[in-house]
Design a protein around this nucleic acid. Sequence first.
DNA 1: CAGACATTTGGCTATTTTGCCAAACAACCA
DNA 2: TGGTTGTTTGGCAAAATAGCCAAATGTCTG
Lengths: 106, 106
Amino acid sequence: MDQTTQARYEARARVMKALAHPTRLFIIDQLADREECVCELTAMIGADVSTVSKHLLVLRDAGIVDNDKRGNQVFYSLRVPCVTNWYSCVEGVLQADAQQRLAAIR
Amino acid sequence: MDQTTQARYEARARVMKALAHPTRLFIIDQLADREECVCELTAMIGADVSTVSKHLLVLRDAGIVDNDKRGNQVFYSLRVPCVTNWYSCVEGVLQADAQQRLAAIR
DNA sequence: CAGACATTTGGCTATTTTGCCAAACAACCA
DNA sequence: TGGTTGTTTGGCAAAATAGCCAAATGTCTG
């Protein structure tokens, strides 16, 4: 694998890695409909604000969300909405798994 | 976030996490066309065989690949091909990033 | 300006992930 | 059977991640 190829896969992996956490996937889902402030997301998630803030930073660094400071609060929004399309595929993986486990039992 | 919801996001995150590594993304790409043996993948990747084997185990545990032992060698194949569709979206994230950086320079 | 509210940052520990080596296994071949 | 090839497993050290608390920053309001 040459260096250019390797760099491309590393860039892709950085994006994937940013999404590879339950809390961050939940955030993505919330932002699919509309932007939300950190306070609202924190209330829904039920973790420390600092924890949520760091998750948002990860998503931002990966280029997946944008943020907009308005007055007191900071609103986050999805920059690349297509990430929500992945779910059907992820669910496909999970369902294939479930079916295989069922088949093993029979 | 109730427990059922949390469990769902954790399941999704496990799938995403399995893909969140440059080497494993490369493997997925190779398997998009045809199955490959561990030896061939190892040659292409240029890491220790044991390292490649462990990456394949991660993908297998996540339900993304299947393996088939034939004689001496083990062939891996994609079980859920749709994962390769994500690339266009990931590239979208990366390109949006690049454009934003360009805009910042101007 | 002082206090309240919203968010980020620093720092720390616990946990997970990675990648290599060495060793174990498994299947083939002479 | 003994050696060779292909693959997995165990173990370990280095690096990355996660989540909490405390403290800093920024913004509004009285």
